[in-house]
Amino acid sequence: MTVDIFDAIFNRRSIRKFTEQDVDREKIIKILDAGRWAPSGLNNQPWRFLVVKDEQRKAKLAECTRYGHIVRQANTLIVVFLAKDAMYNATKDYQGAGACIQNMLLAAHGLGLGAVWLGEILNQETQVHEVLNTDPEQLELMAVIAMGYPAQEGSSSRKDLSQLLLEEF
């Protein structure tokens, strides 16, 4: 299934409840590929990914966030890091990580999956590194994407564009 880009942008929603259906490896690879094709300053591509499907690791990660119920229920987690040795400008690299994550969220939507960007877990970065056995000297946690087949409809609203424009054009 393919989705028109504007349809994906305007209709993708954060999904926080999932069915028990397994997300197959091919879909996960497509989502990771969408992330790696995000723009980055100097094309440095500083993002690194860790895919977590193991129930025991998910349970331990769930203890690292107040949104543990989402982490436990998701079929697949994609943990997104920045490789510190690949970074050249923190602001640009953080922006690139955001673009990478958004690409993956849109790809998940396009593949019929639901996903949510979990950022609160950043407050427990030390714990996350301990659970995943990753090196905080080498990797900076950016987000955890929880995903699976949606068991709910998402909803959202946006401010009117006129409220966001600094001046009329």
Rank of each mutant, 00 (worst) to 15 (best):
R25D: 10
Q45V: 10
R16C: 09
N44Q: 11
D54A: 09
F49P: 12
G35N: 13
K53N: 05
D4R: 00
A38R: 06
L42F: 15
N43L: 15
V51Y: 13
K27F: 01
K27N: 06
E20G: 07
D33V: 08
A8W: 00
I29W: 07
L42H: 13
R13A: 13
K27T: 09
D4C: 00
I31Y: 10
G35Q: 12
I29T: 12
R13L: 12
R16K: 15
E55F: 01
V52C: 08
E26K: 12
P46R: 09
T19Y: 02
P39N: 02
V23R: 05
W47P: 03
K53R: 15
K17F: 05
D54C: 05
R36I: 14
L32Y: 09
F49Q: 10
Q45S: 12
V51S: 10
P39E: 10
Q21R: 11
P39W: 02
I29D: 14
D33I: 04
I28E: 04
P39V: 02
K53L: 02
W47L: 07
I15K: 04
D22G: 00
D7M: 00
Q21C: 00
W37Q: 12
I31P: 03
Q45I: 06
V51G: 11
E20I: 01
E20L: 05
I15H: 05
W37D: 06
G35E: 07
Q45H: 09
A34P: 02
V23S: 04
L50S: 10
R48P: 10
A34M: 11
T19V: 01
V51P: 10
V52G: 06
R16A: 07
Q21V: 01
D4H: 00
I31H: 09
A38Y: 07
R57N: 04
I5Y: 01
L42M: 15
D54R: 14
R36A: 11
A38Q: 04
F6W: 09
L42S: 15
R57F: 04
K53M: 03
R12E: 05
F18Y: 14
R57E: 06
G41N: 03
I29R: 14
F18C: 03
R13C: 14
S14A: 14
T19D: 02
L50H: 11
P46V: 10
Q56T: 14
P39M: 04
I29G: 01
E20Y: 00
L42C: 14
D4E: 05
E26C: 00
A38G: 10
F6C: 02
R13T: 14
A8P: 01
R12S: 07
I15P: 08
D54E: 13
R12Q: 11
S14Q: 11
P39Q: 01
K17P: 02
Q56R: 11
F10Q: 12
L32E: 08
D22V: 13
K30F: 08
G41K: 06
I28T: 08
V23H: 03
F49N: 12
R12H: 08
V23N: 04
I15G: 03
R57L: 13
R57K: 13
R16M: 12
F18S: 03
E20H: 04
T19G: 02
D24K: 06
A34F: 06
Q56M: 07
A8C: 01
Q21Y: 00
R13G: 11
